[in-house]
Amino acid sequence: MIELKHVDKIYGKGEGAVHALKDVSLTIRDGTFTAILGKSGSGKSTLMNIIGGLDSPTSGEVWSAGKLLGKLSKNELAAYRNKTTGFVFQSFYLEPTFTVLDNVAMPLIIAGMKRKEREEKAADILEKLGLGDKIKKRAGELSGGQKQRVSIARALVHGPSLILADEPTGNLDSKNGREVMELLTAVAEEGRSVVLVTHNREDAKCAEDVILLADGVATTRGRILEDEVF
């Protein structure tokens, strides 16, 4: 379970300060597909980065997997990112000169796993995501949809319990976008927690829980129904 208690995030100081999150308290249930829905600039990425240990809140508490993130040391936080979470970014953050296999194996490389073992694992997951024939290719040579699937493979390869995806369909056409959403839904059905950040109401319909974010203020609600208007 992930729990946020009175989380505030303020960027900068004085006149130019931006209050990106305002007293956010919420709970994300284990093994559910949760969407964070809001307009551009509403603080979605900020919220997700704080949940994933990529950024720290200005004040408030973030509990994840029984740990208070603010109390973890830098190394423990790195281990949390390396073992517990998997990230999917809008702009992929793949290393274009590395092979697809190496990109996917990166969390395992950092964890110090032996080459043979990690390459087997990475190849397995790529096979599952239908990228078995792209293993030896450089990441830079792939299309956008392929890149996003590779970055999902990277987010899954080390078997994390929490997948965080920040606008994963933002740079994709609608067909590729739909495929990525189906993939994430399948991942959630395996029993992992998936947190999806999106400004797209359609995408949010895949989620069981929805966190609405407007100007840094969060409200939690249930599934958005197919024909619902709000």
Binding site: N75, A78, F89, E95
Partner: peptide
């Protein structure tokens, strides 16, 4: 920087 950021996002620690 971007590359290091990615590595850190997937768990690279200060020592690494």
């Amino acid at each position: 920087r971007k590359f290091f950021g990615m590595l850190k996002a997937v768990g690279l620690d200060a020592k690494g």
